[in-house]
């Protein structure tokens, strides 16, 4: 249930309109389709629900680790959360004091991302056990386990027709899965999203965020690129645009000044531009790209490092989860 505005927006008229504070650094945020609530994960094992009208925060306890993965049913009635405890929890989103309707030990290790099909019938989860699980959203039954990735699966997203799922792992390997058959094929390795640091002998990379273009033709995968020092996070923000039909990379979006950091959130605005939020050595920024050019047409420095982003259902506001314990809401002004 979206409420897209017909009025065009202009990212150059971005304005900070609200700050919602917490006592722990935030890790992610999620704007539910009904626009009544904003949810956050934090470094405290809780899910936090802010009712936007009143500014009231409700802590939802059921996870035993941090939560960074969110999804909502299309009407916003149910919230799904995936934790680093491997638990997939279904909540009644609007309850005064939400309690878990269902908790599933869904993965061995972290759940890193959730995705819901457009009709809300299916939920997909992925994580450190290298698996993708597909769930019946209503019953919680596991329908399929998709195996093929050889490292942690960082992100996944349904194609617009819900017949395919795209997933990306630590090494930037993208799989395309046919949901009905459960068959996957390795589509492409996004080299811009992975380095093996030979000094520290460790992999760094993976898609830290994912979003689809409004028409479903492109999938954006954000992360860190050109890493020269994995353990200090010395690398540049990046978003790779994957063509969902050809399986090729159409464009790699970067910062003009090669800003250091990681792209932690990405979204596509129906007015025809991509938005990315970054955090890291180069501080926090919002980037706006047209998609046919590799460099941004506009950017805004944030008060602190961003760790997650969610576009409002009406596409006129942006929520950013920050490392400084603040959830900040930005209005994207009109022309």
């Amino acid at each position: 249930m979206t409420n897209e505005s017909a009025m065009p927006v202009d990212p150059r008229k971005l304005e900070l309109v609200r700050e919602l504070g917490h006592d722990r650094p935030l890790t992610a945020c999620h704007w539910e389709p009904g626009s009544r609530f904003l949810y956050c994960g934090a470094e405290d094992n809780l899910v936090h629900r802010w009712e936007l009208a009143s500014g009231t925060r409700t802590a939802m306890a059921a996870h035993d680790s941090w939560v960074r993965a969110f999804a909502s049913s299309p009407n916003g009635e149910f919230l799904y959360t995936g934790g680093y405890d491997g638990r997939l929890i279904t909540w009644s989103a609007a309850a005064e004091n939400p309690v878990p309707l269902r908790a599933i030990e869904a993965h061995d290790g972290w759940i890193r991302a959730l995705a819901i099909s457009g009709d809300g019938r299916y939920l997909a989860s992925c994580g450190n056990d290298r698996q993708i699980n597909i769930w019946d959203a209503a019953s919680g039954a596991r329908l399929q386990s998709l195996r093929g990735h050889t490292t942690h699966v960082y992100q996944l997203i349904y194609a617009k027709d819900a017949r395919r799922i795209f997933s990306c792992d630590l090494r930037g390997v993208v799989f395309e899965w046919t949901v009905e058959s459960g068959v996957g094929r390795e589509l492409v390795t996004v080299k811009a999203l992975h380095e093996y640091d030979t000094t520290f002998r460790a992999d760094i990379g993976g898609a830290r965020c994912v979003a689809a273009r409004s028409d479903g033709e492109q999938i954006a995968l954000g992360g860190i690129s050109n890493v020269s020092n994995a353990f200090a996070g010395i690398g540049e923000i990046v978003v790779a645009l994957l063509n969902s039909q050809s399986g090729k990379i159409d464009q790699v979006l970067q910062a003009k000044d090669k800003t250091q950091g990681t792209t932690w959130g990405v979204a596509h605005h129906p007015d025809g531009f991509w938005i990315g939020v970054s955090g890291g050595a180069g501080r926090g920024w919002l980037y706006f790209w047209k998609g046919d050019e590799s460099h941004e047409f506009h950017r805004v420095e944030l008060k602190h490092d961003g760790r997650g982003m969610s576009l409002s259902p009406d596409r006129r506001q942006l929520a950013v989860a920050h490392a400084d314990m603040q959830l900040r809401i930005y209005a994207i002004g009109g022309p």
């Binding site: 290790g109 002998r201 353990f231 200090a232």
Partner: peptide
Amino acid sequence: HADYDTHHENFDFHIEQ
């Protein structure tokens, strides 16, 4: 055994190492 100097993404790298 190296390396554990995890100024960045300590948790991911500790899983790895």
